[in-house]
Design a protein around this nucleic acid. Sequence first.
DNA 1: CGCAGAAATGTTTGCGTTATCAATTCTCCC
DNA 2: GGGAGAATTGATAACGCAAACATTTCTGCG
Lengths: 343, 343
Amino acid sequence: MADVAQAAGVSHQTVSRVLNDHPNVKPATRDRVLAAIRELGYRPNVAARALVTRRTRTLGVVSFNTTLYGPASMLYGIEQAAKDLDYFVAVAALAALDRRSVLDAVDRLRDQAVEGLIVIAPQTSAVNALSQVRSDLPLVAVGCGTHAALSSVAVDNEAGAERATSYLLDLGHRTVHHVAGPRSWLDAQEREVGWRRALSARGAAQPEPFVGGDWSSRTGYELGRELAARAHDPRDPITALFCANDHMALGLLRAVQQAGLRVPEDLSLIGFDDIPEAEYFGPPLTTIRQDFDELGRRALGTLIELVDLNAGGGPAPRNAPRVTIGPGLVVRASTAPPRAGAA
Amino acid sequence: MADVAQAAGVSHQTVSRVLNDHPNVKPATRDRVLAAIRELGYRPNVAARALVTRRTRTLGVVSFNTTLYGPASMLYGIEQAAKDLDYFVAVAALAALDRRSVLDAVDRLRDQAVEGLIVIAPQTSAVNALSQVRSDLPLVAVGCGTHAALSSVAVDNEAGAERATSYLLDLGHRTVHHVAGPRSWLDAQEREVGWRRALSARGAAQPEPFVGGDWSSRTGYELGRELAARAHDPRDPITALFCANDHMALGLLRAVQQAGLRVPEDLSLIGFDDIPEAEYFGPPLTTIRQDFDELGRRALGTLIELVDLNAGGGPAPRNAPRVTIGPGLVVRASTAPPRAGAA
DNA sequence: CGCAGAAATGTTTGCGTTATCAATTCTCCC
DNA sequence: GGGAGAATTGATAACGCAAACATTTCTGCG
């Protein structure tokens, strides 16, 4: 910086002013400084700047499993938005879900002096752990269901599940069965609630949900076999199914087709997420669309609001905003009216 | 830090020594200092430390599309490994693939004073842009094919493709067709080379590959329709197909089945990547396995080596290590011998 | 022409840490 | 008991930047 100042024939403070867009700099000097900066390839030192301003322009993202489509997309949206707002993003992946590793990850990021945190960790346990984080750090949870005691940005799982279920009911199915996600995830809980609500709103029977799924195709497959064995039970035929996410729906599809059931003729199936592949399942999957990208961007937006508020000093207003994004129904070929006499 | 020093009754310099594991500190004082640190919940200020040490312990990851399974998994592996080595990870997603945005992303990370860079951007254009990055920054590319002029960690695409193709040939197919990935990706190029090599090694006919795919299920579907129309051509029947990745294979599966072809009876299909869902396609997909996680970890390992070398000063030895990981064939149900008379 | 006030620039200080060198306190052996 | 040398501790000086205050240079108007 001293070199730049010398090259431009000004003091280092003037260089600093140019860098920070301070008002009182003569355009001519500004240009000279800018030229010198380019000339010398000067880049301000973030560490020094952070030291004196006490701001790092870095945001932390702690995520459970960035390998899943949802989290990965949210991370992507977050990064895009951060870039536009000129913030950096540091990530910390969670090794496990206990309170300990959540707090560890938060600490790691805190050590790096992040100004705020976005958490992609939709499990009850993680959310509980989060409530123990010292409140001096702005924090927003994304895609963690809408009922957590945190600032959060999420799609309305209940509304989505309700929509999916109602759609099947509208098609003429007597009732709709449900393959649930892991109970430890808020999203799974909320989707189950939405499903139940839709059923009771129509006075439809409320069958036991199929549990034990962990979002993976593998467990979807396993539950699908179990389900196929019961699908033809004359006392309780299964003609319509709301599956808590698309990946499980894929495994499920495989299992029921192996068992000789046709989708959608014998069984209507609806998923949740609308992953890019859903359109190419056999048959293409009707599902509830979740705009993860947008979720990430919105999460970053509300985090920045908190950070700016916090910049004034004082504790972070933790449980202020709670943003809900409406999910959308995408109708494809895995749903149909029940066959005559079947329903 | 001054507070800690006072609480422990020592100078701040001694606190610093304790923090940095310096040898000459009496155990008793060390304990007192440690106690004071815990007591006061003191955390060292990274910015100040970075300012004086000129090291940030931060590594940058620039990635094209972290939404894809491969990049997402590599990122995950990288982060895991970084945590173990006590480094931070900052990510920058690429908006587009031109030289400009690659260089922008690199600059963004450089501004943040990262000590090294891992690039997940397997396109020729990106790799070319990378070669323009000033060589003072250690850099390793991951999953970008093995022929780039960079330090890199990747699976051996050619070997994998050769393996897939040979497997189909061994099954008795006259030849193997290929649905190629985007030509602008090194991986796609290398897989095509491997495929050709396997064919010529056996003296099999070398049909034109199907091009225009962009890794997505959508393009896989489109190419699948085109292919299905030609599959029964008596002069050039298509009985075996090597598809450049699993996602395209999914779309393709859908298209050919829609066209009335049975897999594997009429058409054997083999993919590349082994995404978690591949096992639950209908039918389960035979594919070439790529261990993305491991790839990420190895990439981080070699980057750290470069960083440590670089810490001594001088330009980063850019094109030193090049790690290749062997891919593995996973046989499932999408491949079979040709029907009698068909091949 | 001169003066007030605004605009532009410069000087000094301190952010929290580690490095360097100086000072003190041990330890061991004659 | 004393002295050499090692071990331990402390004081001071950077690191590169922005904030606060000081100074200089403009501008407009009587």
